[in-house]
Amino acid sequence: MKSFHQPHFDSVDVLARRFAAVDYIASRGIATAVYLGFNLEKPILVEGPAGVGKTELAKAMAQILDVPLIRMQCYEGLDESKALYEWKYGKQMLYTQLLKDKLGEMMAGAIGLAASMERLHAHDDLFFSAHFLEPRPLYQALHQERGCVLLVDEVDKSDPEFEAFLLEVLSDFQVSVPELGTIKAKVKPIVFLTSNNTREMSDALKRRCLHLHIPFPEPALERRILERRVPGLSAALNRELVAFIQAVRQLDLKKQPSISETIDWAKTLLLLNAEHLSLDLVRETLNVFLKFEGDIDSADEQLPALLNQARKDAEIHHASHA
C-alpha cells in the first residue's frame, strides 16, 4: 500500500496557500487539521452547521491533489451492498441462461453427477469474479490507482451498524469481501467524514478520526471568502454585507445563514447592481439567505436596527484598516 508522497506539504501555511489557490479560504484551524490528517494518514471527521463548507473542503482537497473525489452520501438504511460492492445478480443469471448450451457442451462426456461437478469446479469462481461485481463508492475508492479523496457525507445519517462497518475501512483502508478476500487500498485515500450532529457518533469511530469543527466564519475570514468567490463585488458592499450577515447570526433563528447563503446573497446583489445595502433592497432579498417564513418575519421586524449596526460595524472596520 502506498501513500501520497507527492505532493507533500511542508507546513500548514503552505497547505493554506494551496487551498486559497483553488478558491477555498481555510482558517488556520481547518488547515492544521487537514495538514495533520494528511500527514498522519488519518480520516478527518468534519462537523459544523450546514453550509459552512464541509463538503467543499473535500472537493478543494481533491482539486489540490489532482485526484478524483469519490463521494458516498449516507442515509438511513445504507448498507454494505450499496456502499462497498454488490454482485450483479441479474447479469449472473443472464449469463448462466445464455451459456446453458456451452455448459451442456462442457458437460458432454462426463459420466455421473460427481464427474460433472468436477468439471464445473475447474471453472469455479467464474461467476463470482470482478466481472460480476458492481463496485460501489468504497470499493472504487480503494481501487484508485493514484489515490483519491473519499468523502463520506453526512455519516450521522447512517445506521450504527454501518458505522461499525466503516471502522475497518477507516483504520486499515481495507475491506473484506467473503468471495474475494481482503481488498487493500492501492493508495491510501484521504478520507473526510462530515456530520451535522443529528446523532452522536460512536467512540470507536471518533477515535479513528481527527476531529474538526468548522464554525461560522469570523468577519475577516468571511470577507476573504467573498472576495474569492464573488469577484465583482465592491469592497464597500462586501464589508456591509458581511457585517449584516454577522448581525443576523446573532438573532434567534431557526436556520442561521451560513457561508453558502452569504455567497448566494452577494451574487444576487451583484446581479442587481447594488452599491450599498438599503432597507428596500435587503427586504426584497431576505429570502435568499433566510429559508424559513418565521425567520424572515423576525429579521424583517428588526431590519432597520440590523442595518444600522451593520453599517456601523463596516465603518469601524474600514476606519481601522484605513
Binding site: 492544521t32 495533520l36 498522519l40 471518533k206 477515535r207
Partner: peptide, 26 residues
C-alpha cells in the same frame, strides 16, 4: 506525531494541532 510535525515554536499552531488530535467532540 502531530507535535513532531508542527513543532513547538508556534503557540496557536501547537494549540490547534493538539486540539485536532486529542479532542473528539466540540
Amino acid at each position: 506525531r502531530a507535535v513532531q510535525l508542527v513543532g513547538w515554536s508556534d503557540r496557536t499552531l501547537l494549540k490547534s494541532a493538539l486540539g485536532a488530535t486529542l479532542a473528539k467532540t466540540i
